[in-house]
């Protein structure tokens, strides 16, 4: 079931089109990553979905509620982690969470109980007497995540959750998101961090200049953009007529005297056949290695294609 739905979503600011004709769905319990460079329209998309901005045309629905018709309801159903934590530096964690809980309409005992539980869950309880201005960047981002989770939202929008963090802070926040994912949260993750997207997302949408370039699971995107997996066989000694030996099994891409590269959609069938053929011809195989198909290559190839 789709919890978040964007249908031909378009957002213009004056003459600038930030998002154009974007359609996608996020299913219950799924982590969808919006991947794109700075200025691609990721934040604007999230702001439209979170009912902070009104789309110029098209529409978005969260848990069946149209963001244009019921923006308050949508803002209550959504937990938004903003790119910058933007905490109130003079407040202490419990006061801060109490304020946002009250803004979300939670009663005082619930606010207190949830704030305490979340602070403990995110290892911030011991810092509860500190002012938020004294927090490290990683702590601030976790605090912002706690704020987003406080009212028990059905869906989480995480906008560049680790963009401003050092590696340790980024690791902590990624672990926190991974934990939320394990517990079945529906998450829309905006990022330009490919490792993060690969680590956390079930599906990806690559967005550029406000338009969707590609979508799918990571494997689907790799297949779409990079083609079938490529394998390289290294032999111990040169083997004469190497490519011709294998032509009826695979289509070789490149080869040398003692090595060969080929692609195959079905490695479970192809690779044993290749190995058997080579061994039968007297070849001594050193390695059969699948060449890494990195998300970075998918991304760069797509970006290169559009620019």
């Amino acid at each position: 079931m789709a919890v978040v739905e964007a249908v031909q979503l378009t957002k213009r600011f004056g003459t600038v089109t930030a998002v154009e004709d974007v359609s996608f769905q996020v299913r219950e319990g799924e982590v969808l990553a919006l991947l794109g460079p700075n200025g691609a329209g990721k934040t604007t998309t999230v702001r439209c979905l979170a009912a902070i901005l009104r789309p110029t045309s098209g529409y978005a629905r969260v848990a069946g509620h149209d963001t244009r018709v019921a923006p308050r309801r949508v803002r209550h159903l959504v937990g938004l982690l903003t790119e910058f934590p933007g905490l109130y530096g003079r407040m202490k964690p419990l006061d801060y969470l109490d304020f946002f809980g009250a803004m979300q309409g939670l009663d005082a005992p619930t606010r207190r109980a949830r704030a305490e539980a979340l602070l403990k869950q995110f290892n911030l309880w011991d810092a509860r007497h500190q002012r938020l201005g004294q927090f490290s960047k990683g702590m601030r981002q976790k605090m912002a995540l706690v704020r987003a989770l406080l009212h028990g939202p059905r869906v989480l929008f995480l906008d560049e959750p680790t963009a401003a963090l050092d590696p340790e802070g980024a690791y902590q926040v990624r672990q926190a998101i991974a934990d939320l994912r394990r517990r079945g949260h529906t998450i829309l993750l905006c990022t330009h961090n490919l490792v993060e997207a690969e680590m956390l997302a079930d599906r990806l949408i690559i967005i550029h200049r406000g338009r969707i370039l590609a979508r799918g699971t990571i494997e689907e995107l790799k297949d779409q953009v990079l083609g079938d997996p490529a394998f390289r066989v290294q032999l111990a000694t040169p083997l004469e007529g190497l490519p011709d030996l294998l032509r009826d099994v695979v289509a070789p891409l490149e080869w040398g005297a003692d090595w060969i590269r080929y692609r195959t959609r079905a490695p479970a069938q192809t690779n044993p056949a290749v190995i058997a053929r080579l061994q039968a011809a007297g070849g001594r195989i050193v390695t059969v290695v699948e060449e890494p198909r990195r998300l970075e290559d998918v991304y760069l190839r797509l970006m290169g294609a559009v620019s």
């Binding site: 308050r72 309801r73 803002r75 209550h76 159903l77 009250a102 803004m103 979300q104 309409g105 939670l106 619930t110 949830r114 539980a117 979340l118 403990k120 869950q121 995110f122 290892n123 989770l149 009212h151 028990g152 059905r154 672990q175 926190a176 934990d179 939320l180 517990r183 079945g184 949260h185």
Partner: peptide, 26 residues
């Protein structure tokens, strides 16, 4: 992350004010 966890989606949904000015928020 701590072992103590909270079932986040188990909370009853709060219905915000539908129209007019919500003085509680103010």
């Amino acid at each position: 992350m701590s072992e103590r966890t909270l079932e986040l989606t188990a909370l009853p949904e709060v219905t915000p004010a539908r129209s007019g000015i919500d003085w509680h928020i103010v």
